[in-house]
Design a binder for these strands. Structure first.
Lengths: 210, 210
DNA sequence: AAATGTGAAGTTGTTCACAGCT
DNA sequence: AGCTGTGAACAACTTCACATTT
């Protein structure tokens, strides 16, 4: 069973789907049942045509003259993203950032559960009150297998990152959210998303120059 | 003195410039003086032609038959990004994530210094050993003016985000790194970069579906 | 010989304009 | 009348092919 072949769909479309989802959730919280592409696009920060084009990659979900059903659209997006059921995730590297992410609630709310964390010096964390168990690195294969984990968050130093990635991949991880500032080399069926805060700041810095 | 008009340069090029910078720094640490577009592109995870095209938006920096001088290229990129001198930054929202970022060393290394942080309940942090002073929100204008701060990191809850952004902008902030999961509305001369960890995970989730 | 710099071709993603439902 | 769905035009970005320099 290989990757599904849907290469026609732009990556950015998938990204925006998540943005739409956030907006729909807020609409639902306000008891709004129906929304036009114009209104939804507005809060999502895109053009209405783009929203409609994005959605039609997956089918027809709107009612002409009326708009989209908030509930129904929410469902179709979570289904598509694969977050309609809670997904287990592990985190590697319990430093400053890693610790913060362990306590971050945003993940749970969006369908992800950090089931365990790993660190070279797992013993150091025994006493601290952290919301998940911390294991040493050699427990990676077992924990990942036991919980059927497919995704990992890597908050390790740059020098360790490639090796950690290799370990994760051989343990069966196929999606990595990488905070280390290096380009990871992984098999092509493994997906990596990079988050690099220094790069984001540098970008801002460039664009605000006067 | 308004924004410089260089709209011909793709945004993605600016982003990659930061990536190249990271790679160049590692080369320099290994005492490598000269690098070909092929080698640099390889570690940066792009095609050599793309690297060369990116650089030529800003001039000619290579030597044909030889490659690029690591030191010189580093200098030209930091200069361009405006990070050749340390830039002051403030952080708003000293929760889990905010606290982690205050202790994160990556920023200092790349030319940014968090000079102060703000929180609704600044008093709570008086005793904790944090590397920067924490002020209540009403001190925003003064601190920003005193330190000539132009960029801010926002790690506040979604409900507070727009109001905080408004305050920052009126205090003179022109670049915002926003972690709150909403689309901020700001004047067009203010630049916002969004970091949304839940969205990144959702993206991964989509692409690893089998 | 080796590697850069670059116009032109190709590819991908966005927006328009309007046909088609409800 | 109002709003979605979509082929076609457009714009942005990437890659190619090769001329040019050391």
């Amino acid at each position: 069973m290989k990757k599904p072949n849907r290469p026609e769909i732009p990556r950015k479309t998938i990204y925006r789907l998540s943005v739409y989802l956030r907006c729909l959730q807020r609409l639902k919280a306000n008891d709004i049942r129906t929304v036009s592409s114009e209104a939804l696009a507005q809060v999502a920060g895109v053009k209405p045509t783009q929203l409609r084009k994005d959605l039609t990659y997956f089918g027809q979900f709107g009612t002409r003259g009326l708009g989209y059903d908030v509930q129904q659209l929410t469902l179709m997006i979570t289904d598509l993203l694969g977050t309609s059921s809670l997904q287990p995730v592990v985190l590697v590297g319990v430093g400053n950032l890693g610790t913060a992410l362990l306590s971050y609630r945003g993940f749970q709310e969006e369908g992800f559960e950090i089931v365990a964390a790993f660190d070279l010096e797992a013993r150091r964390f025994r006493d601290r009150k952290l919301p998940v168990p911390i294991y040493p690195m050699d427990k990676v294969p077992d924990v990942i297998a036991d919980h059927h984990v497919r995704m990992a968050i890597m908050t390790v130093p740059a020098v360790a990152a490639q090796e950690v990635a290799n370990n994760l991949v051989s343990a069966g991880i196929v999606g990595i959210l990488n905070f280390a500032p290096i380009v990871l080399v992984v098999p092509e069926d493994v997906m990596v998303s990079n988050v690099n805060l220094a790069i984001e700041l540098e970008n801002l810095s460039y664009f605000i120059q006067s």
